[in-house]
Write a protein that binds this DNA or RNA. Structure first.
Lengths: 144, 144
DNA sequence: TCTAGGACCTCAAGTAACTTGAGGTTCAAG
DNA sequence: CTTGAACCTCAAGTTACTTGAGGTCCTAGA
């Protein structure tokens, strides 16, 4: 099998899709363990760091917060535990994503209506008569 | 007609749905003009402040950034301008909202698949075999 | 008139998750 | 041996507020 690679921070960044400062930041906040250092003090990463950072990156892609990622990492580090914990985290997060989706869908609807109405009724005219700004001037939940 | 109300910051907050510190913050960053002050130095707001803050609040409800709100406020203050500027801002923002929607929809799909698969295949078993954590361990875009 | 407590005041720091910048060292190729 | 890219640390900036500390003001009741 291949010899264990020793990665520089730049290479690790490239291969995981993180930036170099982000990797140092994750180390600062204890999400990544401090790696070994070479003669000149430069960080030297092992294959296991690559795996861990890939995992972290992926969780972040899925929009888990850093604190949630911390919990997920703790789970992966403790492979005997029941995976219901992972499912619970995922489902909690899924609920949050769905709530945000509902919000954004409502937003999209309102904004596209405004844009359409403005294009049809007031575009080219003065701001004073703009249906968009008119809509923005009314309190939330106002049915007018 | 009704006499012009003079509002305390607390009352203004209540009527617009902003918090008191938020109102002071908006003043700090120049989004709200500094109001008159009463004898003891307390802020005293006019009807026009109420209208402006309502407008700001509404824009924020629609997820415009503070900088965008600043531009929108500038538009409302200059009613002779062409309202195409407002439509452009709204459409730019709409595009951003739609992009975010696409992202979240993809996210929702992935997460719900993971949760379903875990419930069916690994829930109750050890983390080691969890399909969720397995999925999180693979780099983005990996078709496995 | 006094007083209690609620609302107000200012200024500083904390939040999330990084990014950016300054100023300096180390490494690797030519 | 030199040069330029990559690395180092530490501090501050970003967004849009929130929270806290410590102190003042206003108003209603006794």
């Amino acid at each position: 099998m291949a010899a264990a690679r020793a990665l520089t921070i730049g290479t690790l960044a490239e291969q995981t899709g993180c930036t170099v400062p982000t990797i140092r930041y994750y180390e600062d906040i204890g999400l990544l363990p401090p790696p070994r250092r070479g003669a000149g003090g430069q960080r030297s990463y092992a294959e296991s760091d690559f795996a861990r950072l890939t995992f972290i990156r992926r969780c972040r892609d899925f929009d888990f917060s850093i604190e949630q990622v911390r919990e997920l990492v703790a789970l992966v580090e403790d492979p005997e535990r029941d995976c219901v914990a992972a499912k619970d985290l995922a489902e909690t997060h899924l609920s949050a994503v769905r709530a945000k989706l509902r919000e954004l869908r409502a937003l999209e609807k309102s904004l596209s209506q405004f844009a359409t109405a403005c294009a049809a009724q007031c575009a080219g005219g003065p701001i004073r008569d703009c249906v968009i700004l008119d809509a923005f001037s009314k309190p939330a939940g106002c049915g007018c």
